[in-house]
Amino acid sequence: MGETLLEVKNIVTEFRTADGQLPAVRDVSFSLKKGETLCIVGESGCGKSITSLSVIGLLPSNGKIASGEVRYQGEPIHQYSPEQMRKIRGNKISMIFQEPMTALNPVLTIGFQLREPLMLHLKLSKNEATKKGIELLKQVGIPYPEKRMNQYPHELSGGMRQRVMIAIALSCNPGLLIADEPTTALDVTIQAQILDLINDLKHDFHMGVIMVTHDMGVVAEVADRVMVMYAGKKVEEGTVEEIFNHPKHPYTIGLLNSVPNVDDPDFVLEAIPGSLPSLHAKIIGCRFQDRCQFASEKCRSQEPPEFHISNTHTASCWLESEGDSNGSSLNF
């Protein structure tokens, strides 16, 4: 650990729509070290997937990074041409998607899809790539890998397909793995297997992992650090202990209180009222104000800056400005 792998500075990702430019990610910054897992959490539509797609350069054609920087090992990859990006993607930065059935090509064999990145990026011959492919399948715990190489995606179960996706993503020993809801479509027993696998491989290859998820349980299980997003903005960031044991932002607290805990028979479920504002909505002040029980006049007029609670813990909420015991606000 220690070496910074990825640095994202103030990125704004906009979509061109009939109603004009629509910012889906608003001024988000974060960084990731080698061997670290960062979880991005939030409700659907909060911009967590778009943030990860911005990093890997896979935004839809009407979306673009309007401002800000994405640096991978110091290189400004947001300025790279599509050709340059293609050389990095699947090689140094890989991605695992939520739905392995739609991410795998149904008319090509598992073997073909596994060999492709190996032959393209590592310039292996077909025979070498086959050998490496079988090795990779073994590594992700697929039984009878030789047989699987000649099978098609539909012949495998959901958990197996996700393992194949992971094998493909890991084929070129990437430095950074982005996983967008990798286990949402899977059953709990299979989910546990996949999470363990990603964790083991992270240790083996010393990768940085960005995991996008809405499942607080998964976050607690795998994350080193957590970034909470709401309506396109980062609202809180901290180590997993800080976020789960001392959450500061009312939204983070609300999220944690809306997940029933299996171990706690006396759990009191507290819902966050209302729903996410639309991206079009022009909101003055804090974007969470309408759903926040602590919202004051200040929240409706001024946008809260990032307050530092500790070296690793930040929250964007005016509550943190009011002389918290260790709240040393930078901007105030």
Binding site: A192, Q193, L195, G217, A220, E241, L256, N261, V262
Partner: peptide, 17 residues
Amino acid sequence: SAIPRPTVQKNRKRIRL
């Protein structure tokens, strides 16, 4: 045992099917 718990506790004993 397979359910991910929304609480931070390292080294929980788990059964993996």
